Structure formats: structure tokens, C-alpha cells
Amino acid sequence: MEVRTIKVFTTVDNINLHTQVVDMSMTYGQQFGPTYLDGADVTKIKPHNSHEGKTFYVLPNDDTLRVEAFEYYHTTDPSFLGRYMSALNHTKKWKYPQVNGLTSIKWADNNCYLATALLTLQQIELKFNPPALQDAYYRARAGEAANFCALILAYCNKTVGELGDVRETMSYLFQHANLDSCKRVLNVVCKTCGQQQTTLKGVEAVMYMGTLSYEQFKKGVQIPCTCGKQATKYLVQQESPFVMMSAPPAQYELKHGTFTCASEYTGNYQCGHYKHITSKETLYCIDGALLTKSSEYKGPITDVFYKENSYTTTIK
């Protein structure tokens, strides 16, 4: 009895394709271990004539594949690729409408935090270190965002349907971005203890939790000093293409032309909904596939993004 075979390709990165001759009487799992086709788990399936010449994702289970996976995804987590594939199996079914010149995501599976993050990423200057993220990001900007969303979920250790947080998501993504040249110098002034300067680099240099107003941050924000008295913390120097200011959701007025974009969060910790506000020729609110415009805006804002380049204080 002759062994019926077909020729397929296996890959971990969709760049390096490895030619395989597979036995049609055995499952993919018996031949390769966990195997995925377009995100779908085909591990328990036997090869079919229609699979001839198709590319299958496999887990990096030998040295060659491990090197290829690390170079593309910059992670050695053995569960990463499987999590990416199972997320992709959902995100490829989502709709990605162009809204006001940006790629958004039609609401499904509690994905409003991903839509808000995706919209924000198209408006701030950011370059990702893992080629996987950078490639998928370019495709997302062009309207094909399924891979990018699935990668975000995998890097953030999230599953489809789980509630997510924009600030946490951005923080994970910033860790995989090139923020080497970003720098922030802060000064804390206390009447009792004097003053202390701190220099922050990388992710810490672009994120701040405690106030939404970048102007206020430049002037000074009140913080408790270690001595128990009130101290003032203010920005001395900022070198970065953008800054992200966050605070627990509270009524906040966004003035046209003073910011790049913002995240609105309605609801409580267990259950809520994100919308995205962007400042173009007027203010726009993007909620999944829905767009509304207004000249002014007041609502429960939790993150505001500002364009920056270089700032030095005039406070002496």
C-alpha cells in the first residue's frame, strides 16, 4: 500500500517557510505537534488534498525554529505562539472599519479597549522592536488589523473576551517599542525636605499616572512627601515624541487643539466601556464603527496623549 502524501510549508514567522512532505494517514499533531492554519487549530486533523502548498504555523520545537521565533517575536515564552494563534482565530472574524481616516474595530468580545489602543497607536510616533509587531502594525494602518490585535493580546497575556485596560495595554506595548531616546527629568520640591531631581528613561519617561493635564504637570502637581507634608512635583525636561497622561476616570474637559487623542471610560472596574476622542479640525468621538463630532467635550476621561518633541522648564 502506497503512502499518500502532500507537500506543505511549516513556519513560526510566515517569513521562513520549511518544506514538509506530510503523510495523509496521520494527523498534523502526530507529525508536527500543535499546528495552526489561519489561526485555526488543526492539530487533530489529517492532511487533505486542499492543504497542498498551504502554510501551517507550528510551535518552535527545534533550534532553527526557536531562533526564527525569537528573532521575529522577541520572546522565548513557549506558550506565546499558541496564544497568538488562538487569538487570531477570533480577531480574523472582527470587522476593521476605516473611521475618520483611522483603522478602528467594530465592537465584539469586549474589544473596546483594543480599538482605543489601536486608534491611539496610529496617532503617536512609535516604532516597535519585534519585527512581528512592526509588520502587523503597518498592515493594521492599511486596514488589516487582525494579526496586530492578536499579537497585542498575546504580548499582554490576554484572551479574547476578557476586559482590558488601555493604560495597561499601552504599557505592555511600550515595553516592546523603541523608547531608548526618551528621557524625563522631574523635580520634587518640599518646604521641609528641599528639592530632589529624578531622571527617568524609556517607558517611565512617557507615562504618568495622577493627572490628565500635561500643562498642569509642567506647572506642578501636589504629591505627598515622605515627611508627610505636601510637596510639588513638576516637569523639568521632556525628550520624547509623545507623552501619555493618565488618571482614574473623572469628568474632564478636553479643549480642541490642546491634545492629540484621549480615552474615555464609562462604567466601573468590573464592567465598563471605552471610547476614543481625537482632536482634528474639530473633536471626534470614535466608538467602534461609530463616529460623532463636537466642538467641545466633557466626560469621564482616563488617558490623554500629547505630541511632544523637546521641553525644558522655565521655572527657576
Rank of each mutant, 00 (worst) to 15 (best):
Y84Q: 01
E2T: 11
C285A: 14
T103D: 03
K7A: 13
M85E: 02
G228Y: 01
D109A: 06
L17F: 10
I105A: 06
N178G: 07
G39P: 04
V12D: 07
F174A: 04
V188H: 10
P60I: 07
H51T: 04
V243K: 00
T35K: 05
S25W: 10
K316M: 15
G164R: 05
I124W: 05
A142P: 04
Y265K: 00
E144V: 07
C190N: 02
Q122W: 03
Y252N: 04
T116N: 08
V236P: 02
C190M: 01
Y306E: 02
I315R: 15
L102I: 08
S295G: 12
H256A: 13
Y36W: 15
Q98Y: 10
P224K: 14
S181N: 11
Q30I: 11
N100L: 07
W94G: 03
C271L: 14
A108K: 07
S263W: 00
C149G: 04
T120G: 05
Q123P: 03
G33V: 05
Q123K: 06
Q175C: 08
M85C: 07
P131H: 03
V188D: 06
L153E: 03
A150I: 01
L121K: 04
C190E: 00
F305Y: 06
K158W: 05
T192L: 09
Y28V: 04
V185Y: 03
L88R: 04
E125C: 06
E239N: 09
V3I: 13
G101I: 03
D62F: 06
K44W: 10
D287M: 02
Y137E: 05
E239S: 10
K127G: 07
S213M: 01
T76N: 09
K92T: 10
H74E: 07
F174C: 02
E239L: 10
Q251A: 10
Y113V: 04
Q20C: 11
Y269F: 12
A262L: 00
Q195N: 13
Q251F: 14
Q251M: 14
V188L: 09
K275R: 15
I223H: 14
V3T: 12
M1I: 02
G299H: 01
F305L: 07
L126V: 14
K316W: 15
E308W: 04
Y138Q: 15
S181Q: 14
T314G: 15
D180G: 10
Y284A: 13
K95I: 14
H18A: 07
V243D: 01
N157I: 03
A40F: 13
Q98W: 07
L173S: 01
K54Q: 14
E204V: 06
A142V: 13
C225F: 00
V189C: 11
K229D: 15
H74Y: 05
N129P: 04
F70G: 11
N187V: 12
W107I: 02
G33E: 05
T232A: 05
C261Y: 00
E264Y: 02
A115C: 14
P34M: 10
Y265F: 15
P47V: 08
D287I: 04
T199E: 13
S246M: 00
T199P: 03
E125I: 04
R167V: 02
L153P: 03
G299C: 04
E162A: 09
V221K: 05
P131K: 08
N147T: 12
T91W: 04
E308N: 11
Y284T: 12
T232H: 07
G228P: 00
E168V: 08
S86D: 14
Y284F: 11
V22F: 06
C156E: 03
H48F: 12
E162C: 02
S181Y: 12
A136Q: 10
Q123H: 06
A142H: 15
G288K: 02
E144K: 11
N16I: 09
V99L: 13
M24P: 13
A177V: 08
D109I: 03
K95C: 13
T91F: 02
N111I: 02
V12N: 09
Y28H: 05
N14V: 06
T198I: 15
P249H: 03
C149N: 01
K307R: 13
S295N: 07
A87P: 04
N100Y: 07
K93M: 09
C271A: 10
T120A: 15
D287G: 00
E71W: 06
L235R: 01
K218L: 05
R4A: 13
P47W: 03
I105F: 02
C285M: 15
K93N: 14
A177L: 06
F32Y: 08
G39V: 08
K229E: 14
Y269L: 15
S181F: 11
Q237F: 12
C285T: 13
K316S: 15
N16S: 08
Q196F: 13
P249S: 01
L37A: 12
I15F: 14
Q251C: 13
E168F: 05
T55S: 12
D38W: 10
Q270M: 08
H18S: 06
T198H: 14
N100Q: 14
N14L: 07
N110K: 04
V188F: 07
Y138C: 15
A69W: 06
G267H: 11
T19P: 14
Y96V: 03
T312N: 09
A115E: 03
S213D: 14
T43D: 09
N309Q: 15
L212E: 01
K275E: 03
